[in-house]
Computed example of a mutant assay.
Amino acid sequence: MPGRERRSDAVANRDRIVEVARAELSESNGAVADLKLHRVAKAAGVGQGTLYRHFPTREHLLAEVYRHELTQLVDAVAPLLAEHAPLRALTGWLQRLIEYVRVKRGVMAAIEASAWHDLHADQGHRLDEALEALLDAGRASGELRAEVDAADVLLLLGALARIPEAEWDARAHTAVTVIVDGLRPR
């Protein structure tokens, strides 16, 4: 139909909006209050109407940024395992997880508890499965302790949530290094 945006353009617009919002959140260290929707629209090269057509509220956009970030994290597992030894792949993945957690913290702070619960219930298993694949490879190679599973590592990673934002850059990578060191066989 003349005058209507083609589907591929709509998808490209949506993807650009999500990527710009994710970049804005990353640059502001996950500070959702600094995410200005009019700036996101402008930087994505779309009008505000297009942004609101795809994402009627800030929560909708933040939820999609979270989903996008989670998908990238999960999709990174296979290439990391193909290119690196299991321990190095796990370490690289956990370093990527630090950025994911930064975005997640901002999203959690901005989305209502019920919406966050629904989003996490729908997507959370993907993170568990990705981590378990990395741990399985590490255990099979003998690089990781046999008795540690994804639930153990996720509990340890929960410490990232306690790092004050002002100390994030200094402490998050150190915490991940300590976790990886603890996963090595004795």
Rank of each mutant, 00 (worst) to 15 (best):
Q72Y: 13
S8G: 06
V180R: 02
G47P: 01
R14Y: 09
D9C: 09
L81K: 08
L80N: 05
A76M: 12
A76Y: 15
L127D: 03
G49F: 12
V11Q: 09
R58F: 05
A44M: 05
A133L: 12
L157V: 08
S8E: 14
V65C: 03
G3H: 06
A85R: 14
V11C: 03
S28L: 00
R105I: 12
T177F: 06
V18Y: 04
M1K: 06
K104R: 15
V40L: 06
A172R: 02
E167H: 11
Q95R: 09
E19C: 11
L35N: 05
F55K: 01
A146Q: 15
A23G: 10
A10S: 13
E112I: 01
E165L: 12
L144Q: 00
A44C: 08
P2K: 11
D75E: 10
S26D: 07
L155Y: 02
R4V: 13
V176D: 00
D149M: 02
D122K: 10
I17Q: 09
A121N: 07
A89D: 00
L73T: 00
L87V: 00
P79F: 15
L61M: 04
H117I: 08
V65I: 04
P164V: 03
A133D: 11
H117N: 06
A44T: 05
L155V: 15
L62M: 02
M108P: 00
V178C: 08
S28V: 06
R4C: 10
R184I: 05
N13D: 14
Y100Q: 07
A33T: 14
A175V: 15
P86D: 05
A130G: 15
A150W: 05
H38S: 15
V32R: 10
A121V: 06
D152T: 06
W93L: 01
A130H: 04
V74N: 11
L156F: 01
G45Y: 07
A175E: 10
P164H: 04
A151V: 05
Y100G: 05
A140M: 04
R39A: 14
R88C: 07
A63V: 10
H173C: 09
L144D: 00
A43M: 08
L155G: 07
L35S: 09
L35Q: 06
G45R: 03
G49L: 14
H38I: 14
N29T: 15
A78G: 07
L134Y: 02
E167M: 09
A172K: 02
H117F: 10
Y52C: 07
R88Y: 07
L37C: 12
V11P: 00
L90G: 00
L90R: 05
N13I: 13
T71C: 11
H54M: 02
M108Y: 10
A33K: 12
T174S: 04
